[in-house]
């Protein structure tokens, strides 16, 4: 019969190194862009046309996000890959709905955080970035936030990796901290690309800070620090509720959950036999 083997070969180390390099480059692109924007020129956003800053923010963050996707997406197992569209639809449907209300939250990361908890930081980062890119098919204004979304996914995965989803009260705390970092990173995009926020509710908060005489960048960063941590605390809590409602077999099909003992009550004792 056919001479091909029915079993999988061990993964080649060269490919793994290349992927790791892409991951690092992507993270560097995002970090570098952020550092450049913050260090060089927050003063004049409200001054001139400011399109160079917008271009740098757009291209730097987008290139970073795409590098991350290129690094991670080919390595994901099928069980994670098919869950990404589900996560994206959750992000988009909830995000679109909440964005249309007058609540200063977004709730557009539930799917991303769900994947991160089940499949790890890398998968979370790729899902976050992909989510923004594919959502921009319906709403192009979310595209520049791809890097921020990737960061949320990565942080959520790390939180899961280190057991913050094992206790119920840790999840909102982890979400709160993630929100602080995510908000700080997304603020330059809102400031330099959009010159403000995309919602009326968040806009009102920015207005309040501007009325107190803050620069636009400072006002948007403060607004992000008000909205994002609460938002992510809610998201992390909802995801914790979701994953604990999943049947055991569905949770344990993810090696990340088994290996790192992500959820309470699903020890690896049986898995290792």
């Amino acid at each position: 019969m056919s001479s091909t083997s029915l079993t999988l070969p061990a993964p080649a180390p060269a490919a793994a190194r290349k992927r790791r390099l892409l991951e690092i480059l992507g993270a560097l692109a995002i970090a570098g862009t952020y550092a450049y924007l913050v260090l060089n020129q927050p003063s004049d956003i409200a001054g001139g046309p400011g399109s160079a800053a917008a271009l740098i923010a757009l291209s730097g963050f987008l290139v970073g996000a795409i590098l991350l996707i290129m690094a991670v997406l080919p390595t994901l197992p099928a069980s994670t890959l098919v869950l990404i569209p589900v996560a994206l639809v959750l992000n988009i449907v909830l995000g679109q709905f909440v964005g249309s209300t007058l609540v200063p939250f977004y709730l557009d990361a539930i799917g991303t955080v769900l994947i991160a908890v089940l499949a790890g930081p890398a998968a979370g980062a790729a899902t976050g970035a992909l989510s923004s890119i594919i959502w921009s098919f319906f709403n192009p204004t979310v595209l520049p936030f791809a890097a921020g979304a990737a960061l949320i996914g990565a942080l959520a995965g790390l939180a899961a990796r280190y057991g913050l989803f094992r206790r119920f009260y840790f999840a909102p705390i982890a979400g709160f901290l993630t929100g602080i970092i995510g908000g700080v990173v997304s603020a330059p995009v809102a400031a330099f690309v959009f010159g403000g926020t995309s919602g009326v509710a968040t806009g009102a908060i920015v207005s309040a800070f501007r009325a107190m005489g803050d620069t636009l960048f400072a006002a948007i960063t403060k607004q992000a620090l008000l909205s994002d941590p609460m938002d992510k605390a809610i998201v992390f809590t909802l995801v914790a509720l979701l994953v604990y409602a999943l049947p055991r077999r569905a949770r344990l099909q993810f090696p990340f959950v088994r290996r790192h003992n992500v959820l309470a009550g699903t020890g690896r004792d049986d898995a290792t036999n």
């Binding site: 409200a46 709403n139 806009g203 501007r210």
Partner: peptide, 24 residues
């Protein structure tokens, strides 16, 4: 329709923030 759904709230926010509060 799709453009209006995205751009109307965005423009409202922009004019609210900068139209009313622009210390510079």
């Amino acid at each position: 329709a799709a453009s209006a759904m995205i751009l109307v709230p965005l423009c409202l926010a922009l004019f609210m923030v900068h139209g009313l509060f622009f210390p510079e």
